[in-house]
Design a protein around this nucleic acid. Structure first.
Lengths: 195, 195
DNA sequence: AAACTTGTGTAGCGGACGCTAAAGATAAGG
DNA sequence: CCTTATCTTTAGCGTCCGCTACACAAGTTT
């Protein structure tokens, strides 16, 4: 046990509350006042525990990737590239449609455009999207090496196409698309899969 | 000539300047101070000419659809559905990569998530995205009626898939994708085209 | 020219923003 | 018990936000 007075709130629960707000309203659209209210934490405690708004967002982003967005690394563990992509789309739709949190993907909704003050957040989200695409690409490279995916396919191109559809699904979800509609989008996308 | 003192700035030029800012920084990320500076218009003149920030955004949005985003209705005039989609993708990539304005599509970057104050803007953008998709769907319905597109294809589903890719391209552009990369994404998407 | 109408410039409104200093509260270690 | 370390509370910092009141400038109409 640390020396002084123990904190009266749970870090992870507060982080979850912050994540929901950032997810729904974006980085710039989320105010400290709304954060402290939803997290049940006073402003100085928030700063002591998380640093500042930007650091809080990054920690919420980490939590996002470890929990709701964990479907992506999980999907890539499927035995074949095709199965991995099917799982990936399935997971993306499930997350994007989950009523327990806002529609869409935080990596897309957090901030595509922003004022100068939030430029570093915008870039951080861009990096995370690239990292997701790179993980898919590496999985495809492995699949080609294993002979599971046609060697005529370009792993990088295919990964970029797949992720373009995933980001597009997130935009569609923000527009109120239904699960069935997103599923038909995925069906169409899978028709492009290399024979 | 109207009665009083004539205004000293051009409405359309000022609107273009506002459009660029909203495009780059989103609705919430664009301040009135930056708008007045870029537009070369004082605050009271701006309010007299455009109403308020929200009305100004809507007018800039109209201008966006009539100028940079006019590639969509233009593409739909192609003689066949397949050619229309090729033109649509080509136009989307050209616009999204045009160095004269920010990367990506205003309908996506303007605001996917926002604070409560900008909720109506978010909904407006969502409506415009739906309208774009509906225009594509109607073009496909016509193509099916004309026998130009296989009647086994569902016009609504296909339109939603195509537009999902377009929105995804916009997200990719925000991440610094190159034109060649977007073109390969489109190639992959077109492999799903019904025979 | 006088009267009128409208745009422009200055200055500032009330409020929300992100953030922090200072003091009181509550636990541990000694 | 007393000290120490940490968290919580209250209050408010300076700044920027979107927006507007008001006086002045610059045109047209009569």
């Amino acid at each position: 046990m640390p020396r002084g007075r123990p904190r009266e709130f749970e870090i992870d629960a507060a982080l979850d509350a912050a994540l929901l707000l950032f997810w729904r309203h974006g980085y710039e659209g989320t105010s400290l006042a709304s954060l402290t209210e939803a997290m049940g934490v006073n402003v100085p405690s928030l700063y002591a525990a998380f640093g500042n708004k930007e650091a809080l967002f990054r920690k919420a982003l980490d939590r996002y990737l470890q929990k709701p967005a964990s479907y992506l690394p999980a999907a890539l563990e499927e035995p074949t590239a095709r199965r991995a992509v099917e799982k990936l789309f399935e997971g993306a739709i499930r997350m994007v449609m989950d009523r327990r949190h806002p529609d869409g993907c935080l990596l897309v909704h957090g901030s595509l455009a922003s004022g100068p003050a939030a430029a570093s957040i915008r870039e951080e989200l861009s990096r995370r999207r690239s990292a997701a695409e790179a993980a898919v690409r590496r999985r495809f490279e492995r699949a080609i090496a294993e002979g599971d995916l046609s060697s005529t396919a370009n792993a990088g191109e295919l990964a970029r196409f797949i992720m373009t559809v995933v980001w597009g699904l997130s935009v569609q979800a923000a527009g109120g698309a239904t699960r069935a509609q997103l599923e038909t989008v995925v069906e169409w996308a899978l028709r492009a899969w290399p024979a």
